[in-house]
Design a binder for these strands. Structure first.
Lengths: 180, 180
DNA sequence: CGCAACATGTAAGCGGTTACATGATTAC
DNA sequence: GTAATCATGTAACCGCTTACATGTTGCG
Protein backbone atom coordinates (compact mmCIF):
# COMPACT_ATOMS: atom_id res chain seq x y z
CA UNK A 1 0.00 0.00 0.00
CA UNK A 2 1.53 3.26 -1.15
CA UNK A 3 0.84 6.97 -0.69
CA UNK A 4 -1.64 6.82 -3.56
CA UNK A 5 -3.83 4.28 -1.79
CA UNK A 6 -3.68 6.12 1.52
CA UNK A 7 -4.73 9.38 -0.20
CA UNK A 8 -7.63 7.49 -1.72
CA UNK A 9 -8.54 6.19 1.72
CA UNK A 10 -8.48 9.67 3.20
CA UNK A 11 -10.74 10.88 0.41
CA UNK A 12 -13.21 8.09 1.22
CA UNK A 13 -13.94 10.09 4.37
CA UNK A 14 -14.82 13.28 2.48
CA UNK A 15 -13.46 15.57 -0.22
CA UNK A 16 -10.20 17.40 0.32
CA UNK A 17 -7.32 19.23 -1.35
CA UNK A 18 -3.71 18.08 -1.46
CA UNK A 19 -2.97 20.67 1.17
CA UNK A 20 -5.68 19.25 3.43
CA UNK A 21 -4.33 15.72 3.03
CA UNK A 22 -0.85 16.90 3.92
CA UNK A 23 -2.17 18.20 7.24
CA UNK A 24 -3.65 14.79 7.93
CA UNK A 25 -0.35 13.09 7.07
CA UNK A 26 1.34 15.45 9.52
CA UNK A 27 -1.10 14.88 12.36
CA UNK A 28 -3.13 11.68 12.68
CA UNK A 29 -0.98 9.65 10.27
CA UNK A 30 2.40 11.05 11.30
CA UNK A 31 3.33 8.19 13.62
CA UNK A 32 2.97 5.42 11.06
CA UNK A 33 2.70 6.87 7.54
CA UNK A 34 4.49 10.11 6.70
CA UNK A 35 4.26 11.76 3.29
CA UNK A 36 5.32 15.10 1.84
CA UNK A 37 3.96 17.28 -0.96
CA UNK A 38 6.38 15.62 -3.34
CA UNK A 39 4.44 12.38 -2.89
CA UNK A 40 0.93 13.70 -2.37
CA UNK A 41 0.46 15.96 -5.40
CA UNK A 42 1.76 13.41 -7.91
CA UNK A 43 -0.41 10.76 -6.19
CA UNK A 44 -3.53 12.90 -6.64
CA UNK A 45 -2.69 13.59 -10.31
CA UNK A 46 -2.24 9.89 -10.88
CA UNK A 47 -5.51 8.99 -9.10
CA UNK A 48 -7.28 11.59 -11.25
CA UNK A 49 -5.73 10.23 -14.45
CA UNK A 50 -6.94 6.75 -13.46
CA UNK A 51 -10.47 8.04 -12.84
CA UNK A 52 -10.39 7.06 -9.18
CA UNK A 53 -11.04 10.64 -8.05
CA UNK A 54 -12.89 13.68 -9.42
CA UNK A 55 -11.40 17.14 -9.26
CA UNK A 56 -13.13 20.48 -8.84
CA UNK A 57 -11.22 23.75 -8.95
CA UNK A 58 -12.38 26.14 -6.28
CA UNK A 59 -11.70 29.90 -6.36
CA UNK A 60 -11.37 31.55 -2.97
CA UNK A 61 -11.20 35.25 -2.18
CA UNK A 62 -8.08 36.38 -0.41
CA UNK A 63 -6.52 32.95 -0.88
CA UNK A 64 -5.03 30.86 -3.66
CA UNK A 65 -7.34 28.62 -5.69
CA UNK A 66 -7.56 25.06 -4.48
CA UNK A 67 -8.26 21.75 -6.19
CA UNK A 68 -10.78 19.74 -4.26
CA UNK A 69 -10.70 16.00 -4.90
CA UNK A 70 -13.58 13.57 -4.37
CA UNK A 71 -13.48 9.79 -4.60
CA UNK A 72 -15.43 8.17 -7.47
CA UNK A 73 -17.32 4.86 -7.43
CA UNK A 74 -14.40 3.30 -9.30
CA UNK A 75 -12.09 4.74 -6.68
CA UNK A 76 -14.08 3.25 -3.82
CA UNK A 77 -14.11 -0.15 -5.54
CA UNK A 78 -10.37 0.08 -6.09
CA UNK A 79 -9.81 1.02 -2.46
CA UNK A 80 -11.87 -1.93 -1.22
CA UNK A 81 -9.74 -4.16 -3.44
CA UNK A 82 -6.51 -2.79 -1.97
CA UNK A 83 -7.90 -3.24 1.53
CA UNK A 84 -8.77 -6.89 0.89
CA UNK A 85 -5.07 -7.72 1.04
CA UNK A 86 -4.31 -9.59 4.27
CA UNK A 87 -0.49 -9.47 4.09
CA UNK A 88 -0.11 -5.94 5.27
CA UNK A 89 3.36 -4.82 6.34
CA UNK A 90 4.39 -2.93 9.47
CA UNK A 91 8.00 -1.81 9.07
CA UNK A 92 10.27 0.07 11.40
CA UNK A 93 13.48 1.74 10.24
CA UNK A 94 15.25 3.09 13.30
CA UNK A 95 18.58 4.89 13.25
CA UNK A 96 18.01 5.37 16.96
CA UNK A 97 17.97 1.65 17.79
CA UNK A 98 20.81 0.98 15.34
CA UNK A 99 22.93 3.55 17.18
CA UNK A 100 22.02 2.04 20.55
CA UNK A 101 23.36 -1.33 19.33
CA UNK A 102 26.78 0.29 19.17
CA UNK A 103 26.49 2.12 22.49
CA UNK A 104 29.82 0.67 23.61
CA UNK A 105 31.50 3.03 21.09
CA UNK A 106 29.90 6.12 22.62
CA UNK A 107 30.37 8.16 25.77
CA UNK A 108 27.69 8.18 28.46
CA UNK A 109 26.99 11.84 27.58
CA UNK A 110 26.44 11.02 23.92
CA UNK A 111 24.07 8.19 24.79
CA UNK A 112 22.20 10.39 27.24
CA UNK A 113 21.76 13.09 24.58
CA UNK A 114 20.33 10.58 22.10
CA UNK A 115 18.01 9.09 24.71
CA UNK A 116 16.81 12.55 25.78
CA UNK A 117 16.15 13.50 22.19
CA UNK A 118 14.08 10.37 21.65
CA UNK A 119 12.06 10.88 24.84
CA UNK A 120 11.32 14.45 23.72
CA UNK A 121 10.02 13.20 20.39
CA UNK A 122 7.88 10.60 22.16
CA UNK A 123 6.46 13.29 24.44
CA UNK A 124 5.55 15.40 21.43
CA UNK A 125 3.64 12.46 20.04
CA UNK A 126 1.85 11.96 23.37
CA UNK A 127 0.85 15.63 23.41
CA UNK A 128 -0.51 15.13 19.89
CA UNK A 129 -2.55 12.13 20.97
CA UNK A 130 -4.00 14.19 23.82
CA UNK A 131 -5.07 16.88 21.35
CA UNK A 132 -6.74 14.25 19.18
CA UNK A 133 -8.79 12.99 22.11
CA UNK A 134 -10.41 16.39 22.52
CA UNK A 135 -12.19 16.15 19.17
CA UNK A 136 -12.47 12.39 19.32
CA UNK A 137 -16.24 12.36 18.92
CA UNK A 138 -16.21 12.83 15.15
CA UNK A 139 -13.85 9.94 14.54
CA UNK A 140 -14.44 6.51 13.11
CA UNK A 141 -13.75 3.40 15.20
CA UNK A 142 -10.79 2.72 12.92
CA UNK A 143 -9.13 6.05 13.64
CA UNK A 144 -9.73 5.64 17.36
CA UNK A 145 -8.14 2.19 17.24
CA UNK A 146 -5.10 3.47 15.35
CA UNK A 147 -4.53 6.47 17.61
CA UNK A 148 -4.96 4.27 20.67
CA UNK A 149 -2.38 1.93 19.20
CA UNK A 150 0.00 4.83 18.65
CA UNK A 151 -0.43 6.02 22.21
CA UNK A 152 0.05 2.52 23.62
CA UNK A 153 3.36 1.90 21.90
CA UNK A 154 4.57 5.46 22.42
CA UNK A 155 3.94 5.18 26.14
CA UNK A 156 5.58 1.75 26.24
CA UNK A 157 8.64 3.15 24.43
CA UNK A 158 8.97 6.05 26.82
CA UNK A 159 8.54 3.84 29.88
CA UNK A 160 11.13 1.39 28.59
CA UNK A 161 13.72 4.06 27.88
CA UNK A 162 13.22 5.71 31.26
CA UNK A 163 13.41 2.38 33.09
CA UNK A 164 16.53 1.17 31.26
CA UNK A 165 18.58 4.23 30.41
CA UNK A 166 20.93 3.67 33.33
CA UNK A 167 22.06 0.32 31.89
CA UNK A 168 23.70 2.36 29.10
CA UNK A 169 24.66 5.61 30.78
CA UNK A 170 25.84 4.48 34.23
CA UNK A 171 29.60 4.22 34.80
CA UNK A 172 30.84 0.58 34.87
CA UNK A 173 31.15 0.50 38.69
CA UNK A 174 27.65 1.86 39.11
CA UNK A 175 26.37 -0.77 36.75
CA UNK A 176 27.82 -3.48 38.94
CA UNK A 177 26.07 -1.90 41.91
CA UNK A 178 22.75 -1.76 40.04
CA UNK A 179 23.09 -5.43 39.09
CA UNK A 180 23.41 -6.53 42.69
CA UNK B 1 22.31 6.26 8.88
CA UNK B 2 22.13 3.78 6.02
CA UNK B 3 22.83 0.08 5.51
CA UNK B 4 26.51 0.91 4.95
CA UNK B 5 26.89 2.43 8.40
CA UNK B 6 25.03 -0.41 10.10
CA UNK B 7 27.28 -2.96 8.36
CA UNK B 8 30.28 -1.02 9.61
CA UNK B 9 28.81 -1.08 13.10
CA UNK B 10 28.27 -4.84 12.97
CA UNK B 11 31.87 -5.28 11.85
CA UNK B 12 33.04 -3.23 14.85
CA UNK B 13 31.99 -6.25 16.90
CA UNK B 14 34.20 -8.68 14.97
CA UNK B 15 34.98 -9.73 11.42
CA UNK B 16 32.28 -11.26 9.25
CA UNK B 17 31.20 -12.04 5.69
CA UNK B 18 28.25 -10.54 3.85
CA UNK B 19 26.41 -13.76 4.45
CA UNK B 20 27.07 -13.53 8.20
CA UNK B 21 25.81 -9.95 8.30
CA UNK B 22 22.64 -10.97 6.47
CA UNK B 23 21.88 -13.45 9.23
CA UNK B 24 22.24 -10.68 11.78
CA UNK B 25 19.92 -8.42 9.77
CA UNK B 26 17.40 -11.27 9.75
CA UNK B 27 17.58 -11.99 13.47
CA UNK B 28 18.62 -9.34 15.99
CA UNK B 29 18.11 -6.36 13.65
CA UNK B 30 14.96 -7.64 11.92
CA UNK B 31 12.49 -5.66 14.02
CA UNK B 32 13.99 -2.23 13.30
CA UNK B 33 16.47 -2.41 10.43
CA UNK B 34 15.93 -4.94 7.65
CA UNK B 35 18.33 -5.34 4.74
CA UNK B 36 18.76 -7.85 1.91
CA UNK B 37 21.76 -9.07 -0.06
CA UNK B 38 21.05 -6.44 -2.67
CA UNK B 39 21.92 -3.78 -0.09
CA UNK B 40 24.57 -5.60 1.93
CA UNK B 41 27.02 -6.72 -0.76
CA UNK B 42 27.18 -3.32 -2.50
CA UNK B 43 27.57 -1.70 0.95
CA UNK B 44 30.57 -3.90 1.75
CA UNK B 45 32.17 -3.19 -1.65
CA UNK B 46 31.71 0.50 -1.08
CA UNK B 47 33.14 0.36 2.46
CA UNK B 48 36.14 -1.52 1.06
CA UNK B 49 36.65 1.02 -1.73
CA UNK B 50 36.60 3.77 0.91
CA UNK B 51 39.20 1.96 3.01
CA UNK B 52 36.84 1.62 5.97
CA UNK B 53 37.12 -2.18 5.96
CA UNK B 54 39.77 -4.76 5.03
CA UNK B 55 38.90 -7.86 3.07
CA UNK B 56 40.44 -11.30 3.27
CA UNK B 57 39.39 -14.08 0.92
CA UNK B 58 39.02 -17.36 2.76
CA UNK B 59 38.99 -20.74 1.02
CA UNK B 60 36.90 -23.39 2.76
CA UNK B 61 36.77 -27.09 1.98
CA UNK B 62 33.37 -28.43 1.13
CA UNK B 63 31.98 -24.90 0.96
CA UNK B 64 32.20 -21.84 -1.30
CA UNK B 65 34.94 -19.33 -0.64
CA UNK B 66 33.97 -16.42 1.56
CA UNK B 67 35.12 -12.84 1.87
CA UNK B 68 35.77 -11.92 5.45
CA UNK B 69 35.63 -8.22 6.23
CA UNK B 70 37.31 -6.48 9.14
CA UNK B 71 36.90 -2.86 10.19
CA UNK B 72 39.98 -0.57 9.84
CA UNK B 73 41.06 2.28 12.11
CA UNK B 74 39.65 4.70 9.53
CA UNK B 75 36.42 2.72 9.58
CA UNK B 76 36.15 2.92 13.35
CA UNK B 77 36.78 6.67 13.27
CA UNK B 78 34.16 7.07 10.56
CA UNK B 79 31.67 5.02 12.57
CA UNK B 80 32.22 7.11 15.70
CA UNK B 81 31.58 10.18 13.57
CA UNK B 82 28.30 8.77 12.25
CA UNK B 83 27.27 7.84 15.79
CA UNK B 84 27.92 11.37 17.08
CA UNK B 85 24.78 12.51 15.27
CA UNK B 86 22.03 13.26 17.81
CA UNK B 87 19.13 13.64 15.37
CA UNK B 88 18.53 9.98 14.80
CA UNK B 89 15.27 8.99 13.15
CA UNK B 90 12.81 6.28 14.18
CA UNK B 91 10.31 5.79 11.37
CA UNK B 92 7.34 3.50 11.09
CA UNK B 93 5.67 2.70 7.77
CA UNK B 94 2.60 0.62 8.48
CA UNK B 95 0.19 -0.64 5.85
CA UNK B 96 -1.50 -2.43 8.73
CA UNK B 97 -2.40 0.76 10.63
CA UNK B 98 -3.29 2.55 7.39
CA UNK B 99 -5.77 -0.23 6.59
CA UNK B 100 -7.23 -0.09 10.10
CA UNK B 101 -7.95 3.63 9.58
CA UNK B 102 -10.39 2.59 6.87
CA UNK B 103 -11.93 -0.29 8.83
CA UNK B 104 -15.42 1.09 8.16
CA UNK B 105 -14.97 -0.05 4.53
CA UNK B 106 -14.28 -3.65 5.53
CA UNK B 107 -16.27 -6.57 6.85
CA UNK B 108 -15.74 -7.83 10.40
CA UNK B 109 -14.23 -11.02 8.93
CA UNK B 110 -11.71 -9.09 6.87
CA UNK B 111 -10.67 -7.02 9.87
CA UNK B 112 -10.39 -10.13 12.02
CA UNK B 113 -8.14 -11.79 9.41
CA UNK B 114 -5.81 -8.78 9.31
CA UNK B 115 -5.68 -8.55 13.10
CA UNK B 116 -4.97 -12.28 13.41
CA UNK B 117 -2.19 -12.01 10.87
CA UNK B 118 -0.59 -9.17 12.78
CA UNK B 119 -0.82 -10.96 16.11
CA UNK B 120 0.84 -14.00 14.52
CA UNK B 121 3.71 -11.85 13.31
CA UNK B 122 4.07 -10.28 16.73
CA UNK B 123 4.15 -13.74 18.32
CA UNK B 124 6.92 -14.78 15.95
CA UNK B 125 8.92 -11.77 17.09
CA UNK B 126 8.32 -12.66 20.72
CA UNK B 127 9.53 -16.21 20.09
CA UNK B 128 12.64 -14.71 18.51
CA UNK B 129 13.27 -12.50 21.53
CA UNK B 130 12.98 -15.58 23.78
CA UNK B 131 15.62 -17.36 21.70
CA UNK B 132 17.93 -14.36 22.00
CA UNK B 133 17.67 -14.44 25.78
CA UNK B 134 19.11 -17.94 25.89
CA UNK B 135 22.49 -16.78 24.59
CA UNK B 136 22.18 -13.36 26.13
CA UNK B 137 25.42 -13.61 28.10
CA UNK B 138 27.68 -12.75 25.17
CA UNK B 139 25.84 -9.58 24.30
CA UNK B 140 26.74 -5.96 24.79
CA UNK B 141 24.58 -3.69 26.96
CA UNK B 142 23.50 -1.94 23.78
CA UNK B 143 22.15 -5.10 22.17
CA UNK B 144 20.36 -6.06 25.37
CA UNK B 145 18.76 -2.62 25.53
CA UNK B 146 17.62 -2.82 21.91
CA UNK B 147 16.17 -6.31 22.19
CA UNK B 148 14.46 -5.37 25.43
CA UNK B 149 12.97 -2.37 23.62
CA UNK B 150 11.76 -4.62 20.83
CA UNK B 151 10.13 -6.98 23.26
CA UNK B 152 8.49 -4.14 25.20
CA UNK B 153 6.80 -2.59 22.20
CA UNK B 154 5.95 -5.96 20.64
CA UNK B 155 4.21 -7.03 23.84
CA UNK B 156 2.44 -3.68 24.09
CA UNK B 157 1.25 -4.01 20.48
CA UNK B 158 -0.08 -7.50 21.04
CA UNK B 159 -1.83 -6.55 24.26
CA UNK B 160 -3.42 -3.50 22.63
CA UNK B 161 -4.74 -5.44 19.66
CA UNK B 162 -6.15 -8.18 21.86
CA UNK B 163 -7.80 -5.68 24.22
CA UNK B 164 -9.34 -3.56 21.46
CA UNK B 165 -10.11 -5.87 18.57
CA UNK B 166 -13.77 -6.08 19.49
CA UNK B 167 -14.21 -2.33 18.91
CA UNK B 168 -13.62 -3.08 15.22
CA UNK B 169 -15.01 -6.57 14.76
CA UNK B 170 -18.12 -6.53 16.94
CA UNK B 171 -21.49 -6.01 15.22
CA UNK B 172 -22.93 -2.47 15.73
CA UNK B 173 -25.50 -3.61 18.34
CA UNK B 174 -22.82 -5.42 20.31
CA UNK B 175 -20.66 -2.31 20.22
CA UNK B 176 -23.46 -0.32 21.81
CA UNK B 177 -23.68 -2.95 24.53
CA UNK B 178 -19.93 -2.81 25.12
CA UNK B 179 -20.05 0.97 25.43
CA UNK B 180 -22.60 0.85 28.22
C1' DC C 1 16.38 -36.82 -6.13
C1' DG C 2 15.34 -32.62 -4.26
C1' DC C 3 15.76 -29.17 -0.80
C1' DA C 4 18.15 -26.36 2.52
C1' DA C 5 22.23 -24.07 3.73
C1' DC C 6 26.34 -21.94 2.21
C1' DA C 7 28.17 -18.11 -0.60
C1' DT C 8 28.50 -13.78 -3.78
C1' DG C 9 27.11 -10.81 -6.71
C1' DT C 10 24.44 -7.51 -10.63
C1' DA C 11 20.86 -4.58 -12.59
C1' DA C 12 16.52 -2.70 -13.31
C1' DG C 13 13.14 -0.24 -11.37
C1' DC C 14 10.27 1.97 -7.95
C1' DG C 15 8.82 4.84 -4.48
C1' DG C 16 9.79 8.48 -1.72
C1' DT C 17 12.64 12.47 -0.13
C1' DT C 18 14.59 16.87 -0.91
C1' DA C 19 15.17 20.92 -3.00
C1' DC C 20 13.52 24.14 -6.03
C1' DA C 21 9.96 27.42 -7.92
C1' DT C 22 6.03 30.73 -7.21
C1' DG C 23 2.90 33.85 -5.09
C1' DA C 24 -1.01 36.02 -2.28
C1' DT C 25 -2.69 37.28 2.38
C1' DT C 26 -2.69 38.00 7.27
C1' DA C 27 -0.85 38.93 11.67
C1' DC C 28 2.84 40.59 14.59
C1' DG D 1 9.43 44.13 7.22
C1' DT D 2 9.07 39.49 8.02
C1' DA D 3 7.24 35.33 9.22
C1' DA D 4 3.42 32.10 8.94
C1' DT D 5 -0.42 30.14 6.48
C1' DC D 6 -2.58 29.02 2.39
C1' DA D 7 -1.83 26.66 -2.05
C1' DT D 8 0.29 23.77 -6.05
C1' DG D 9 3.49 21.79 -8.36
C1' DT D 10 8.29 19.76 -10.76
C1' DA D 11 12.67 17.29 -11.10
C1' DA D 12 16.73 15.33 -9.62
C1' DC D 13 18.38 12.09 -6.84
C1' DC D 14 18.97 8.28 -3.64
C1' DG D 15 18.54 4.14 -1.40
C1' DC D 16 16.39 0.05 -1.14
C1' DT D 17 13.74 -3.95 -3.06
C1' DT D 18 13.21 -7.49 -6.31
C1' DA D 19 14.51 -10.48 -9.53
C1' DC D 20 18.03 -12.61 -11.82
C1' DA D 21 22.40 -15.37 -12.17
C1' DT D 22 25.50 -19.25 -10.48
C1' DG D 23 27.52 -23.04 -8.05
C1' DT D 24 28.75 -26.55 -4.10
C1' DT D 25 27.88 -29.69 -0.21
C1' DG D 26 25.17 -32.39 2.92
C1' DC D 27 21.09 -34.48 4.51
C1' DG D 28 16.91 -37.14 4.33
Amino acid sequence: MDVKTVCLGMLSDGEASGYDLKKQFESTFAHFFAAGYGSIYPALSSLHADGLVDCREEAQDGRPDRKVYRITDDGLAHLRGALSETNLTHRVRSEFLAAMCFAHLMSAEQIAAILDHRVTELSRYLAMFDEFDECNGEWTDGMRFVCGFGRAITEASKRYIEANRDTLTAAPDLKRTAAQ
